[in-house]
Simulated assay, not measured.
Amino acid sequence: MTRPHAAQPVADENRADDVLPARPTTVRPRRPRPLAVLALTPLLRYAVARHAVPPGIGRRSGCDACGAPIGLDRPWPALGPAARCGGCRSRVGAPPATVELAAAAAVAVLLLARPPAVELVAVAWWLTFAVPLLFIDVAVHRLPDRLTWPAAAGTWLLLGLAALAGAGPAPWLRATVAGLGLALFFAATTLLLGARGFGIGDAKLALGAGALLGWYGWTVPLLGLLLALTLSGLVALGLLVTRRARWSSHLPFGPYLVLGTLGAFLLLW
């Protein structure tokens, strides 16, 4: 006589404990697209066009060739990538597409480095002024106060907010001392060496750069300065070898200070 098989329990599809829990859907916050930053390049081009004038001359307000006004109310085509006057088609400000490429490179550095949010805001503020200053220094060998002072002051205040937000006073005080120290170094070379030293404009630009680098440690500003001096020395050597410059030629240092600061960030972050 065969024993009956035990009845196997049948899972009830309607039982709550047999139903797999649904995976929670995570909503990713939308981040600003990097290409959206390029929409701000007319502002950068406007700053270059306005301030890239020799010392003693007022700010540029129109095309040098035909006098057509240049302003943010009519940004195209003078403040676009073509950088051409709408009236006579003469070039206005920085060479075509160069400001856009510099802005894209700065955004790429920030995307690769991915700094914390507070540091990101401070660096982005400084770069907003450093990018046009780079082109102005190359064009006319000067760094106007209308751009260097807001760059340094805004950077210092944003780092102060970072200290209040939780970083503490120690990195902010270190950033303050580093910015002042780097600026005094540049100013001292001007006082001691005259035209053969760095300019006062470089000292003002170094205020913001030194503060940003000093936020991360005492040796980081030295790293940025070393990178800047190395880059400028290599370029100067290349110009001497190709006879495009002489020993007495004056080369702008602002672009190398900007590049050295970004290079230090890449090595640090």
Score class of each variant (00 low, 15 high):
Asp17Met: 01
Thr25Ala: 04
Ala209Gln: 13
Gly238Asn: 05
His141Ser: 13
Ala167Asp: 15
Ala6Glu: 05
Leu227Val: 09
Ala187Pro: 03
Arg60Trp: 06
His141Ala: 14
Arg91Leu: 14
Leu227Lys: 05
Leu79Asp: 11
Leu225Met: 14
Tyr256Val: 04
Val37Trp: 11
Ala130Gln: 11
Tyr216Gln: 15
Leu205Asn: 13
Ala203Ile: 13
Ser248Glu: 04
Ala82Phe: 08
Thr190Glu: 10
Leu223Pro: 05
Ala108Asn: 12
Thr26Gln: 08
Thr26Phe: 11
Cys63Leu: 06
Leu112Ala: 15
Leu251Asp: 01
Arg174Gln: 15
Leu158Cys: 14
Thr98Ser: 14
Gly93Glu: 12
Gly154Lys: 04
Pro221Asp: 08
Ala65Glu: 14
Gly210Lys: 02
Asn14Ile: 03
Val138Met: 13
Ile57Cys: 01
Cys88Glu: 02
Gly210Val: 10
Ala203Ser: 07
Ala65Leu: 14
Pro75Phe: 08
Pro255Met: 00
Thr189Glu: 01
Arg3Asp: 02
Trp172Ile: 01
Leu212Asn: 04
Leu164Ile: 12
Ala195Phe: 02
Asp64Glu: 12
Ala82Trp: 12
Leu213Arg: 07
Leu257Thr: 03
Arg31Asp: 09
Leu212Lys: 09
Leu112Thr: 12
Gly263Cys: 00
Ala130Tyr: 10
Arg30His: 08
Ala139Met: 13
Glu119His: 11
His5Glu: 09
Ala162Glu: 14
Ile70Glu: 07
Thr148Phe: 08
Thr98Trp: 12
Ala36His: 01
Gly254Gln: 01
Asp64Gly: 12
Gly233Tyr: 03
Pro81Tyr: 05
Leu143Trp: 10
Arg60Ile: 03
Thr242Arg: 07
Ala122Pro: 07
Ala105Ser: 15
Ile57His: 10
Arg3Tyr: 02
Ala108Trp: 11
Arg174Asn: 07
Leu173Asp: 00
Gly86Ser: 04
Leu173Thr: 08
Val123Gly: 03
Thr98Gly: 06
Thr25Asp: 07
Asp12Met: 00
Arg244Thr: 02
Thr155Cys: 06
Leu38Phe: 01
Leu44Glu: 00
Leu159Ile: 14
Asp17Leu: 06
Thr148Ser: 15
Pro255Thr: 02
Leu257Lys: 01
Pro24Leu: 00
Ala117Asp: 14
Gly62Asp: 03
Gly199Thr: 11
Glu100Gln: 12
Ser249Gly: 00
Leu72Ser: 02
Trp76Cys: 00
Trp125Ala: 08
Ala139Phe: 09
Leu111Cys: 15
Val131Met: 11
Leu180Ile: 09
Leu231Tyr: 09
Leu72Val: 09
Ala68Glu: 14
Arg31Asn: 02
Ala68Gly: 01
Leu222Trp: 13
Pro42Lys: 08
Ala52Gly: 10
Phe253Arg: 00
Leu237Trp: 06
Ala162Ser: 10
Ala165Thr: 06
Pro81Met: 07
Val121Trp: 12
Thr26His: 00
Arg31Lys: 00
Ala108Gly: 13
Ala39Gly: 09
Cys88His: 08
Cys63Arg: 02
Leu184Ser: 11
Leu182Gln: 02
Ala162Ile: 03
Thr155Gln: 13
Leu267Tyr: 00
Arg30Asn: 03
Leu213Tyr: 11
Ala16Asn: 05
Pro75Val: 12
